[in-house]
Every structure is written in structure tokens, then in C-alpha cells.
Design a protein around this nucleic acid. Structure first.
Lengths: 396, 396
DNA sequence: TAAGTTTGTCTAGTGAATAAACAAAGATGA
DNA sequence: TCATCTTTGTTTATTCACTAGACAAACTTA
């Protein structure tokens, strides 16, 4: 969380300390009041009073006693992850993945809806149906559905409008407004790569890292930037269009208007187009991987070529950001065995030593759930935040 | 400023509010206590007491009374920019620029030392001499020299070690340690582009912008990133090596080991090399500009070509960061009349509309002082920060 | 069983902010 | 000119969150 210039008073102190206590419980549960006091540096009495408020708000639970360490046995505290639920959605190009998660980001219900017609009306109906289904089937809880979030493969403004979703053929869809109007709940709309980055940071392979870049490699390439532990969105939310970074000056023209864009050479689309040229009929990533597994040299070399181009872009990313991790996600990740070595080889050969030494290349740990869990994390974070705010507001 | 997880208590509240009051005075001086209370939202009494402490610490001054707005005339408060001085240095490849600044970043003394031998011992002697000169000639003040900072064209660790300064031929120079040992003062060592970015943000063309990218175009290209209003340095401080971003896959080999690096095509070095190929003898940026001014078509087209290549890289930057400003600094900036149109043309043609619409391309307002004033800004910020800390510490 | 340890609560005290009263200094208008 | 209104800045009483330390409860160890 960032703090802009603001005035500080005891309300803020309490709010921040309460957040700190809750955060400590989330991260280290089960944990006793005494241990929280030790870790945070807060006084035991302060922790006691904040914990008792959190208990009143049903955000945490007491769970019996823990092991004695030579004295009175501690009362262990747990996050009450069943206090509310999120509805989190990954809106893809051919399907919608919808999940209901608890407040710890655990998936309770999962549902997929395929679609062939990407007309807005059609997709919207599927979307509403999925959300309605989740609302109906969510367990009863203290706070109910605490928010709905959607990850979208497109350019999203900070106001939650889809400016452009090229692979869906959508322009200027005020999705956030539509969902707010219909459901009267907190709504989060986020770019699919941004959400994926946050998902991996919160629940995936990036949990210990504050500087990570998530490359969503699918039909195109989108990138989510976690810098200083926070999602970086740029001035209006359009950061991470690294798929349209030129890696061949005056190379092939991209539909975006630019030339030599990275995603023309390193995306799933590039892979499948080149596979066709090599004589594969109706290739898919899966079919090409199968070809590799049965020893097809053409397929293996094709993946190496794509991996090499991915490596060129990732080398750029390493030079630009000096990240700790670069994570490959989305549909291309399943080819990791065939592309990762090529990526690493290119980085090894081309990246500057200082930057190269720090960085780890990983595949998304959450597989196809990166985006949906990132969305859940945004919603959960927003819930705890506004929940605190409103409690402060009503107390005043 | 970022706040990591920490406990909050009234000491912190006071510290932050005092910082807020001081910051308000710096930004809006001359200003009355009453106006500060209005702007910050703090109570009049709180402001009064914090202001009186700042007066005691000689960090601010009262300056007579202002105009009445229908009642008692206000007592105006000013920053006491003469409470201390910084020594700020831009360590270049052929010269050292040293300045003494007050706490508002105003240059009091400026001195340049040319050198031809870039041997560490020789440069170090020049550096020490310049610093000693500034110390001797600084006006007496409450806090004296509050810190020394050096901007270096190279890779600097967060610990202030120069890992590599290619154009000086230096490796592993523990500059911070050397200066700390010698001067026993707060020392800041920072990459020249990072400092330039901060200089333009604090005192230059970027004062109203929180998302800006500063491209230092000289022999090579280095980039400083201001994201969310803060300098972004990456995991170990090596961000912004965008000069070594590939814009021609498998293009010319760069001395960094990578291929097709941006700075091979868009730097001063590229300009001068190509000028030689075009028949210019001993070309310099200045001589080439003069050629342009007397209508030399070759020179004009050369700058256009360099500008075009700069535009390719800047288009990438725009796609990656969605910045509000891109600022061209360092030696190439004086050719603005001949490169900026080409840069803008390339952006206009190639950048994605959403990102393109927001961005402004500027030339560094501080000219050759961007780096040195950025260094000063770091030192000043550090002074106010540690000054507050220590006051809190001694009060406790 | 006694002594020591750990946990969690309670109480008194501290310090920083706020609200409100107040004094000082000027503006305004009959 | 003088009474009234405005604005500025200080002072005072009050509030609130945290801290230190006392204390009771619960457990371990010898």
C-alpha cells in the first residue's frame, strides 16, 4: 500500500495497526496474541484489544489452545476465511472461467463456459449466468459475496472500462458500470496479465518476491508488472503492452500499427502460424507438444525458435526492470519443457551479467488459475480495506 | 515515500505530520499557519506547535506579515534554505561538474574540472579537490554540509559501489565507502540517468508528473524511471539499462554481449560514427548542429535517422510504462530541434493510440544540470528525513 | 507441591491531535 | 471615529490510542 501525503491521527494509527494484526494472522496462522505482539512490536494489550475487535467482526476465529512453551498455553487465532466469498472470473477468448473463492483465495466452486460467438450480448449472458450461479450456490456467510472481479484480455482503463479487447473484437465496453448496476457490489475489472501477475505474487511462485514480471503468452503477449510489491499500471492503466515492444525495427507490421512487435515472433499465434508453414495441419499447442514428445524434430525446433524469441523480449525486460523473477503464464506455459531451455540460453548469452545473475525464470505455479486468483486477491484486499474504512467511519 | 508494514504510534504520527507541514511550506512558501491548516486538514493548534518546532530547528523562517484577507494579517513562513548545503557532483567521462547547492536546490557555487586521463587515482584526486573546495567555500550555516552525492555513468549497487563504469573503464569501485571514510558525511552514489530523472522530476520539466521516464542520451543511453513519483531501481539497483534493449534481433553485437542494442543505433556514439562514414571529419554534436544550421542536408538527415531510432526505443518505453512524460537529457538534448520531430513522427506512426495520447515528449529543462540537481534532491531529502528521525530519537 | 514461565487482561499514565474559547490585529461601514 | 465583523494564531480542556507494568490464570518443571 502506498501512502500519499495525508494527515495522521490516532484513527489512522488504529486502522493501520489493525490491518497489521490481521495481516500477521493471515500470513502466520495459527498464531497467538503473544506472538503477534512479539512480531509486530505492538504492546500485548494493544494486540488484545485489536484482536477482540477482529473477533467481533467475525474476520478471525479462536481455535482451541496451542502447545505450551513452558507456561500457560496460548489461544491460537485463525483467519475466518469463510466470512465472505469472492466471485472471480477469467474472461478468455473462447471460454469464461468462473470461480467462487473464500477469503483465503481457496477455490470453492469452479465452472467453465465455452463460447464460439464472441458477440458482446452472447458473452454477457454467459457471464451473468455464471455470476448468478455463483451467487446462488455460495455458502451463507457473515459478509456474503464481498465482490466480483473480471480479468479481461484487453486494454482496461483505471475506471474499469474495456477500451479494446482485440481478440474478442470489443471496443469501449463499460463492463464495471454494467456489473455495478446489475449487482450493486464492489466490482474489479483488470487486465488479464495484470491479474495473473498479482495471482502469482499472492498465491503462486512469486510469494517471496517483490520485483516480478509476469508474461502472459497466449494468442498475444501481455505483461503484468509487480514493482516494489505492487501492481504497476502506469498513468492510465495501460502499462505492460510489452507484446508491442519492437524487437525488429521496421519488421513485420503488427495490427497495432507498430512494426516488429515482440508478439509477432513469440506468441501462440506465431507458433501456430509457423507450424502451419511447416506442414502441421490444424496445429494446437497441445498437438505440437505431443509431436515433440514423439520426437518430431520440426516441432522441437519450432518451440526452440519461439523460446528464443521469448528470450529476446525477456532479456529486454531484465535490462529494463532488473526483476527478481520472470514468470511465464497463460496458454504457452504448458510447453515449458521445450521453450524454457531456449529462453534461458538466450538470456545466458545476451543479458548483462549484473542483471542476469539475479533473475529467476519460472512457469506460473497456479497454471490456468493465475488470472482468476489474482482477481480474487484484488477483491479480497479491497474487502479488508473498505471493511476497515467503514468500521472507522461508523465509529467516528 | 513507501510505508512497509510497521507499527504506528503517536511518535510516527507526529513525525509524519511534521514532514507534511514542512513539505507544504517548501511547496507553497510563503504561506501562513492558517493556510497550512486548511491545506493539510490539520488543526490550527497542531500546525502552530509543529511550526514552532521547525522554527526552533532553524529549518524554516518567519518573514514579516502578508496581506490581510479581511482580518488579522498572517505571519508568512518560508523555508530556511540556507540552513545547510549539499555538495553535488556529476562525474562525467571527460569532466567533473561539482556544485554547492542550498536546501532548495539552488546552485551557489559551480565548478568544472576537465580530465583526459580517466585513471581512478587521477579522477579521485580531482574529485577530492573539488569537494574540499566546496567545503571550504560553503557559507557557514546551522547544519553545514548536509551530505555529498555523486552521479556516475555506470552500474551502481544499492550499497553505493560502482560495479562497472564502461566509459571510464572502472570496475568495482567502492566510491561510497571511500567518501564516507574521508568525509564522515551522508553520501549518496547514484546512476547518472537515475539522478537526472529525479532532477527533472523535482526541479525541471517533470514537476507535475508522477510517471516519467528520463532518457539520458550521450555516448550510451541510460534511463531513469520515475514510477508513482518515486525512482524505481529494481531488485539490486540495475533497472533502466534500456540502452541495452534489443531493437534489432540478432543485430550488431554490442560490447555488453547482447545484440541489436538500442544505443548502437540511437546514441551520440552512433551519431558520430555515422557522421564519420558520411565524411565529416572529427564530428561533434555541436559541429553537426552547426552543419544543420547552415543547411547541410547530410547532417539534417543523419539527425533524423538518429531521432527515428530514438523514437523506436521511446515507443517501446511508451508501450511498457504508459508514462506521462518522456524526457530527453544529457548531451544529445542540444540537438532537440533536429531529433524531436523525428522522434514524434515515429511515435505518431507506431505507438498504440491509448498510450500515445497521454504522453508528452520533452527536453530536459535543467540542461546539463539535471543529474547534479537530482543528486542534490536526494541529499536534501535524505537530510530532512534523517534530521526528523534523530529529533524523534533524542526526544524519546 | 512449590517455584518459575507464559499468556492474556486490566489499569494508570503518556502524548499527540482536536475542538473550542480567546486574544490580537486588521477590515468595514454607518 | 467607533463598533462590529474577520482572520490569524495561541491556549486550554478533552479525547483516544498506545505503552508499561501489575496481575490472574494456566501450564511446566524439579
Amino acid at each position: 500500500m502506498k501512502n500519499v501525503s495525508q494527515t495522521w491521527n490516532q484513527h489512522v494509527v488504529k486502522k493501520e495497526n489493525k490491518a497489521l494484526v490481521l495481516d500477521t494472522i493471515i500470513k502466520r496462522a495459527p498464531i497467538s496474541r503473544a506472538t503477534i505482539a512479539q512480531i509486530t512490536g505492538l504492546n500485548k494489550g494493544t494486540v488484545s484489544s485489536l484482536v477482540s475487535e477482529l473477533l467481533d467482526e467475525k474476520l478471525i476465529n479462536e481455535s482451541g489452545t496451542g502447545e505450551s512453551s513452558g507456561g500457560r498455553r496460548p489461544v491460537m487465532l485463525l483467519l475466518n476465511e469463510k466470512a465472505g466469498y469472492t466471485i472471480s472470473i477469467d474472461l478468455g477468448v473462447t471460454q469464461i472461467l468462473a470461480v467462487l473463492t473464500d477469503l483465503r483465495g481457496t477455490i470453492i466452486i469452479e465452472k467453465v463456459q465455452q463460447f464460439e460467438n464472441d458477440n458482446l450480448d452472447v458473452v454477457q449472458t454467459h457471464l451473468y449466468n455464471l455470476i448468478d450461479y455463483m451467487i446462488t450456490h455460495a455458502p451463507t456467510s457473515e459478509y456474503g459475496i464481498v465482490g466480483i472481479g473480471v480479468g479481461v484480455p484487453g486494454v482496461i482503463t483505471t475506471e474499469g472500462e474495456i477500451l479494446l479487447a482485440p481478440n474478442l473484437g470489443w471496443k469501449k465496453v463499460p463492463l464495471k458500470q454494467m456489473l455495478v448496476d446489475r449487482y450493486k457490489l464492489p466490482i474489479i475489472i483488470e487486465n488479464e496479465a495484470n491479474a495473473g501477475a498479482y495471482g502469482e505474487k499472492m498465491y503462486g511462485v512469486g510469494q517471496l518476491s517483490n520485483e516480478l514480471i509476469y508474461a502472459s503468452v497466449s494468442i498475444g503477449i501481455g505483461v503484468g508488472l509487480i514493482l516494489d510489491g505492487n501492481l504497476y499500471k502506469g498513468l492510465r492503466g495501460f502499462s505492460g503492452e510489452i507484446g508491442h515492444m519492437t524487437i525488429e525495427k521496421d519488421g513485420r507490421v503488427c495490427r497495432c500499427g507498430n512494426k516488429g512487435c515482440w508478439e509477432l515472433y513469440a506468441s501462440e499465434k506465431a507458433l501456430l502460424e509457423q507450424a502451419k508453414e511447416l506442414g502441421f495441419t490444424h496445429p494446437t499447442i497441445t498437438s505440437l507438444i505431443e509431436a515433440c514428445e514423439s520426437g518430431n524434430e520440426k516441432a522441437i525446433r519450432l518451440f526452440e525458435k519461439i523460446g528464443d524469441y521469448l528470450g529476446v523480449g525477456i532479456t529486454n525486460i531484465i535490462h529494463i526492470f532488473n526483476p527478481e523473477q520472470v514468470i511465464i503464464g497463460n496458454s504457452m506455459q504448458i510447453a515449458d519443457a521445450y521453450i524454457i531451455p531456449a529462453i534461458k540460453k538466450r538470456i545466458e548469452q545476451n543479458a548483462i551479467g549484473f542483471n542476469k545473475d539475479d533473475v529467476h525464470i519460472h512457469v506460473a505455479k497456479l497454471k490456468h488459475h493465475s488470472t482468476v486468483l489474482g482477481i480474487a486477491a484484488f477483491t479480497i484486499e479491497n474487502f479488508y480495506l473498505t471493511n476497515r474504512e467503514s468500521i472507522i467511519a461508523t465509529t467516528e
